[in-house]
Design a protein around this nucleic acid. Structure first.
Length: 124
DNA sequence: TCCGTGACGATAC
DNA sequence: CGTATCGCCACGG
């Protein structure tokens, strides 16, 4: 698979993420059949069109910080909250989403159905 | 070719 | 929750 195909595959998955939900880079990588390319998923972020990357965060529910001076993470937080996603802020200023509530991790995009509730019966 | 680096992941402590 | 280590792979120097 070429890098172009890779990015295209990532694009298809990311655009399927429903509003009010978030997933992780690793899961996107798994969906496209490359579970070890988690880092490349994010790496292609700047070469892809304006995808809803705000819904793609780390496996721990943390939003990556692009470094000081960048308001990207802050913007993502606002975008997510606008969609109804509760974003918390740690003492070190990191943004965090509760994956137990807002996580979107279907076994495959083929498993995603309009009438389905992939997150039903959660909580623990 | 090797090395450093990176919107990552998982495990160990 | 924090740091440390290893694994993964593409890119540039």
């Amino acid at each position: 698979m070429d890098s172009a195909e890779f990015h295209a595959a990532v694009y298809e998955k990311v655009r399927l993420i429903p509003p009010g939900k978030v997933t992780s880079y690793g899961h996107i990588a798994k969906l496209i059949g490359m579970p070890n390319h988690s880092r490349h998923v994010g790496q292609g972020a700047d070469v892809n069109p304006p995808l809803p990357w705000q819904r793609v965060i780390g496996s721990s529910g943390t939003i990556s910080d692009r470094g000081p001076g960048t308001n990207g993470a802050q913007r993502q937080r606002e975008e997510l909250e606008a969609e109804g996603v509760e974003v918390t802020v740690g003492r070190t200023g990191e943004f965090r989403v509760d994956l137990r509530v807002y996580g979107w991790f279907p076994n495959s995009v083929d498993d995603v159905q309009p009438d389905d509730h992939p997150n039903s019966g959660d909580e623990e």
